[in-house]
Amino acid sequence: MIEIRIHGRGGQGNVAAAELLSVGAFMDGKFSQAFPSFGAERIGAPVMAFVRIDDKKIRTREDVQTPDYLIVQDYNLIGSVPVLDGLKPDGLILINTEKKPEELQLKTTAKVETIPATEIALEIIGRPIPNAIMIGAFCTITGLVRLDAVQEAIMGKFPGRVGENNVAALERAHEIMQKR
């Protein structure tokens, strides 16, 4: 079973990111579960969401505590909340920042990847919502969920221009990560 934890701030589309990954995994023929770390969500407050993907029915309901993958939608959360807690030593952390992975000097043996998702979101979507870019980068690096399955999930949830813009942002993230 693959476990993913998404860290972000209220308003960054954390729960939507988890949902879209799970719907994409479902379209890929896998079993999947997505749920938020529940709270009185407010814009800007640190929030979490969780995704599990497996080849068989997922039964457990505990929060993801030892993730294989971390998606961090706001770099500034590192240091203010224990983002790295439980991350598997051979796991991967994807962070939304303009900095390069080696500049961050994170205390982990896991692989570190970065992408300036907010910048891309402002350019393509016109709003600082990085989730589609983060998912696009994540799927490109890990190959865990097919990119077109996530695209279909996005268009299913946000038909019309919002969806199209997010799909364009997702494709940009895919191009950037492929070049690395």
Binding site: A18, F35, I58
Partner: peptide
């Protein structure tokens, strides 16, 4: 049904 744990979870 358990609030949040089921009501807010996406699954098949």
């Amino acid at each position: 049904m358990d609030g949040f744990i089921l009501t807010h979870a996406f699954e098949p």
